[in-house]
Amino acid sequence: MHEYKKKQMYLYLIVLSICSTAGLQCWATLFDNFSVNIVGLDGHHIGALQSVREIPGFLALLVTYVILIIKEHKLSALSIIILGAGLFTTGFLPSFSGLIFTTMVMSFGFHYYETTNKSLTLQYFDKLSSPLVFSAQRSYAAAASVVVGIIIFFIAPLLSYKTMYILFGGGIGICGIWAFAKNPADKDILPQKKQLILKKEYWLFYFLTFMAGARRQIFMAFATFLLVKKFGFSVQDITLLFLFNNGINFFINPLIGKFIVKYGERKLLSIEYFFLILVFIAYALVDSKLIAGILYILDHIFFNCSTAISTYFQKIADPRDIAASSAVGFTINHIAAVVLPVIGGLLWMIDYKIPFLAGAFFSFISLCFVQFIRTKPATL
């Protein structure tokens, strides 16, 4: 067994990452059909809800202050409990205002876990092993998504949305409680600065993080909605797509970690953004249900490459800046995410192609700036 896998924090973060992804997977699989078929929402409602979902990510910088009160690994577990609670209550409030509330609760849990997870991984694992740990987390999370997708596929015709939300939300909440009772912390870890940190030498990390948030949000807000609205994908169709997608990601993620270790972040991110330009342009032009589904899978595969932005930051950062900078980075990532879905929703009403062409433009800008990355390869 690799040395990094022996750390208690490794298993702790793997379990919580599985819960976080399973929760988001359940929410994403059911959301568009629940919104359209049960609540009766349209494009501008979806855009508004997606913006609301990103507000907690925008407020991730508050993590810097929350960890003054509660230890960072405890906050990770508490975040998963909150995520479960948000899912649990979704089915009880089938209205636009109800969805705003439950989406906000779920999102606070998800985003605060993602912030602390990134921070803890960079603190507890060195530059050589952190890409492999991030990749392992994503790989296990993809496997969990496959399991969630299979379950939803078979129970969707049998159970109500309310019952499915209760089952998944309750299960995730219980796992969060289990983790809250654990203590995987290492006393030898370098203490983190407990204030907001913005440094000009981190400018490229901030910029790439912002652009990743912008292009990711266009995908999150409108790609699945396109599949449901234009191509008539059902809950079962979306679930099958998620299954296939996560099955591929289970095998690809470990390769991404190894690629970063061997070739570095600049090469991986250049490949990602080049192909994303093509994917977004294709979204705007496609008329085939099958090709739209393939584009969705490709988009998901390339999203996994964003791990390289975090590992790039680890190589250039003061180790004491990691917790605060992870929180600030998450907020920067979500500045665009709060604004873009609402604007995109309005642009969608003019022509659904516009948000996707904007995604291609953002990917091109990112491709240009990625060329400024300069790091030395991590060595033993």
Rank of each mutant, 00 (worst) to 15 (best):
K258Y: 13
Y263C: 07
I256C: 04
L278E: 08
L269Q: 04
L255D: 01
I281C: 05
V261E: 15
I260Q: 13
G257S: 02
I260G: 00
G247D: 01
L243K: 10
N249K: 14
Y263F: 09
K258E: 11
I281Y: 00
I252T: 01
L243G: 15
N253M: 07
I277T: 04
L243Q: 15
F242P: 04
L268R: 01
I256A: 07
E272N: 09
E272I: 09
F274W: 12
N246W: 03
I281K: 00
Y283T: 02
N246G: 06
F251C: 12
F250K: 07
V279I: 04
F244N: 08
I271G: 04
F244I: 15
I271M: 09
S270Y: 02
G264R: 07
K258R: 13
L269C: 03
I256E: 08
Y263W: 06
V261S: 06
I260C: 04
L269T: 06
K258T: 12
R266K: 11
L269D: 10
A282R: 00
N249E: 13
G257W: 10
I256V: 14
F259C: 04
N249A: 14
N245E: 13
L268A: 02
P254E: 11
I252Y: 03
V261T: 10
R266F: 08
K258A: 12
L255H: 09
A282T: 06
